[in-house]
Amino acid sequence: MRPLRGLFGSGGRAPFRDPAPTRWAYRYQRLMLTPSFRRAVRVGLPTALLVFIGSYWAAQDKNRAAVTAQYNEFMTDFQHRPEFMVTGVDITGANVSVAAAVSGLVDVEFPISSWSLDLPVLRERVLELSAVEDAVVRIRAGGMLEVAVTEREPVAVWRHVDGLRLIDTEGHMISMIPNRSARSDLPLIAGDGAMDNIEEAMALFAAAEPVFDRVRGLVRMGERRWDLVLDRDQRILLPTEDPISALNRVIALHQAQDMLDRDIVVVDMRNAGRPTVRLSSYAMGGLHRVHASSGAEE
């Protein structure tokens, strides 16, 4: 049977058809003109492909290990370049014993990369030394680790049951000394709680300047007040409140009447309204004798 199409058109030829897009070409063009779809194809698809390839590659242990090794090698190479290397330590501002202690704390093997040094930790460790007030730890140009130490300045000697120690103005103990004569230039402080009131003690020592050659030291009594101990076992008992003016009064009495040169054991200034002196037993006997003779004369 002849195909139906051949019956139409001229001469049995297939009729000429005007060009037209096929249904699928038409739909494809419309789809590609849809903005969201277009974006998905032009951006989303390549991105998804890249992510897929990347994740597939990274999913293999061998590749990840290779990346890690490469990274580590590069980092090591970079950090061990000569400009980052530290070759030694330079401790400044410390005396021999402190410097020895500090160099003992810096327990690193030189040369070392500056990336491996943890300077804040090092500084913390240096600051833990009691003799060190402040420290600056830095890496100086030329590959030197510099530890600039500010030592504590001792202002007094503190006597305690286990020996003598040097203390600074803030009451920090610095180091022990074998005997008093090792630092005879510093005043002596004793008693519990003395360390917490170093500033007051220093003010009292300054006030006691006129009798400084006689001063043996300050003793903190009952963790609340001071006793100024002079030689010949003389004691000046100072009040809790305003001990400096009390001491000034004693000094003034001494300068006017040479009170402290007399045979007095204790000057009790604890009650500001009623200063009291205690004579030695010998002086007391002498006083009785004077009273008796003057009474016999009468």
């Binding site: 005007d18 070409a25 038409y26 419309r30 003109l33 849809t34």
Partner: peptide
């Protein structure tokens, strides 16, 4: 069928010129 093809041709060309669906 022919009309549909012709409409498709016209619409596709116009869409292509407009660059919008």
């Amino acid at each position: 069928q022919e009309t549909e093809r012709a409409i498709r041709t016209a619409v596709q060309a116009a869409q292509k010129m407009a660059q919008v669906r």
